[in-house]
Design a protein around this nucleic acid. Structure first.
Length: 210
DNA sequence: GACCAGGCACATC
DNA sequence: GATGTGCATGGT
């Protein structure tokens, strides 16, 4: 059986479904994707709760919210000044081109939309792909630090290989399958948090033998 | 107190 | 193209 399917089956049989992305609406998922850049998810949850409590977790409300106020609300997520700008950039894009509607943006084809997202200041490949896959149901494989750590530790690809090299490998090895891409990436995060840490715990890792 | 966490932009060579 | 740095909170 193909290696990448084998790894997936090993992780899935060990962990089961991960029910990703942790977020209630496509808009909340997109906001979370920006807030979680290089940041622990528990800190992002605090920031999102602040936005919900302030009743500003919508494109229209965030568009009207002063950037200083936004920064103070997302403070727990870290890098709050820079992330406030990045959220504003995304929301400006959403308002100007799609009337603030995630349903309208979802009608776009993936390839041109990915390019547009990457043109937004503060949205790089991982954030763009997280939004495409988890908020907009587009078939694209998300690469993150955990994915790179797991593959590089198993000598499948060098850690310093580019984002596109990692992504191309998954797109080559796997059938285009939104649900598979969704679950597979979530499982990488899970095994990365549990075992494939900076100090690895390989003995009990489900990928110790595959 | 050190280390880590679901990146990205920017400067410099 | 490769490498280094700033951005910042909160948990272990």
């Amino acid at each position: 059986m193909k290696l990448f399917i084998k790894i997936y089956n090993k992780l899935y049989s060990f962990y089961g479904p991960q029910y990703w992305w942790p977020g209630d609406t496509p808009f909340e998922i997109a906001v979370g994707a920006i807030l979680t850049q290089n940041t622990n998810w528990s800190n992002v949850e605090k920031a999102i709760k602040n936005l919900k409590d302030a009743k500003v977790l919508s494109a229209k409300a965030l568009h009207e919210l002063p950037i200083q106020k936004l920064a103070s609300l997302i403070r727990p997520a870290g890098y709050f000044n820079i992330k406030a700008k990045r959220l504003k950039s995304f929301i400006d894009f959403l308002i100007e081109n799609y009337n603030g509607s995630m349903k309208k943006i979802k009608k776009e084809d993936m390839e041109p939309l990915r390019k547009k997202l990457l043109d937004i200041h503060g949205i790089g490949p991982e954030t763009a792909d997280s939004i495409l896959l988890y908020a907009l149901d587009k078939p694209v494989f998300v690469i993150d630090a955990y994915t790179k750590r797991v593959l590089s530790r198993h000598m499948i690809l060098d850690y310093n290989a580019s984002y596109d090299e990692y992504q191309n490998l998954f797109h080559k090895e796997l059938d285009e399958d939104i649900q598979l891409f969704n679950e597979y990436h979530a499982l990488f995060v899970r095994v990365g948090k549990d075992y494939c840490k900076p100090k690895p715990l390989c003995e009990k890792c489900p990928l110790n033998t595959f």
